[in-house]
Structures are given as C-alpha cells and as structure tokens.
Amino acid sequence: MTRRLLQLFLGLGLYGLSIAMIVRAGLGLDPWDVLTQGVFERFAGPAGISFGMVVNLIGLAVLLLWLPLRQKPGVGTVANVLVIGTVANFGLDWIPSDLALPLRAGLLVAGIVLNGVATGAYVGAGLGPGPRDGLMTGIVARTGWPVKWVRTAIEITVVAVGWLLGGSVGLGTILYAVAIGPLVHVFLPMFTIRKKG
C-alpha cells in the first residue's frame, strides 16, 4: 500500500506539472484543459480564481456527475481532485511564459510525454480512477455504449465548450489527441501494480 500511495501521488504531481508545461507552451491544450482555460478566461480569472483551482473545481464537478451513475470514488479519485490543479499552479508559477518558439515546442512534446507517464503511474497504482475517467466508465456501465464512442463524445464536447469559452485549441491539441493513447498504452503496463494472492 505504501508503494501504491507513493506512486499515486507522484503520478498526480507529474500530471499537474505536465499540464503547466503544455499551458506554457501556448500551442494548444489537451481537451479537458481547453475547457479549463475557457472557464478560467471567461469566469474564474476575472474573479481572481487561479487556473489550478479551476482544474480542481472541474474535477469536483465531474465527480458529482458520478452520483447518478452510481460510481464509487477511491482514494486516488479524491486525491486527483485535490493534487493535480494544485501542482499545476506551482508549475505555472515556476515555468516562464515568454519562451521562444523552439523552447515552447520542446515544452509541449515533453509535457505530453510526461502526461502519458503520469497517467500510467497514477492509474497503475490501482487506487481509483480520476473523475474524468470514472465519468466515462460510469456512462459505459449504465448505457452499454462502446467505450470508444463515449470517450470520443466526451472529448469532443469538452473541447467544443472550452473553445467557445475561449480555450486554446491548436497543434498541441491535435498532437495530444494522437499521442496520448499510444503513450498510456506503453506506460500503464510498466507502472501497474499487481495485487498479490
């Protein structure tokens, strides 16, 4: 259990850092962070609420959608809501926002790869899915619809709403969409902790 908890929190921390890297690259965000940035730009930022806090609040809002789906959160689910946005804020404070394009491109690629590593680590700890993944699995369980269609519909919806609110869609969004599946496919087996017995 100690290893699981360490891996969980390390994975969540790296995930938060990867968000900050992709945001600072300024070349387009992953789908959920397009939504986050849209909410931040339109509502939260003017109200003095930080980007990282918006990440956490959206995670909490998505977690509430679990109630009608009868999903049960784990330790990792709750930690996800608390840790990722908090670490993203630290990363945004630490990473400069005025980098040259080659550095921003490198930051984007590194952030996407780190996101894949982090996802493999926190999911592989086996202590509960993140709110967004649990929403997907809950809808699949309740409706019987195929995972690929549910996941695609969710991602398209959050990108569209985020973009309409002013979130950043660009090359990074496309690169993330193409790369994250294969990256998680590689890293999840490496970090999955098997239950003994």
Rank of each mutant, 00 (worst) to 15 (best):
G59V: 03
W94L: 15
P102T: 03
I58D: 01
S97M: 11
V83A: 11
W66V: 09
K72H: 13
F90H: 13
L67G: 03
F40V: 12
L103G: 13
M53A: 14
P68L: 12
L67F: 14
A100I: 10
N80A: 00
K72M: 11
Q37H: 04
P73T: 10
L35S: 07
G38Y: 03
L57W: 07
G45T: 09
P46W: 06
V39S: 04
L60C: 11
G48V: 07
I84G: 10
D98F: 12
V78Q: 06
I58K: 05
R70N: 14
A47T: 08
T36L: 11
D33G: 07
R104P: 00
P31C: 04
F51L: 12
Q37V: 05
G52W: 04
Q71S: 10
G45V: 00
G76I: 00
P68S: 01
V87M: 04
W32D: 00
D33N: 15
N56A: 06
L67S: 08
L67K: 14
P31A: 04
D93Q: 14
F90V: 15
G74F: 00
F43I: 10
L65C: 14
R104D: 02
L82M: 14
G48K: 02
I49C: 07
P68R: 09
D98G: 13
D98W: 11
L35N: 01
G91E: 02
G85A: 09
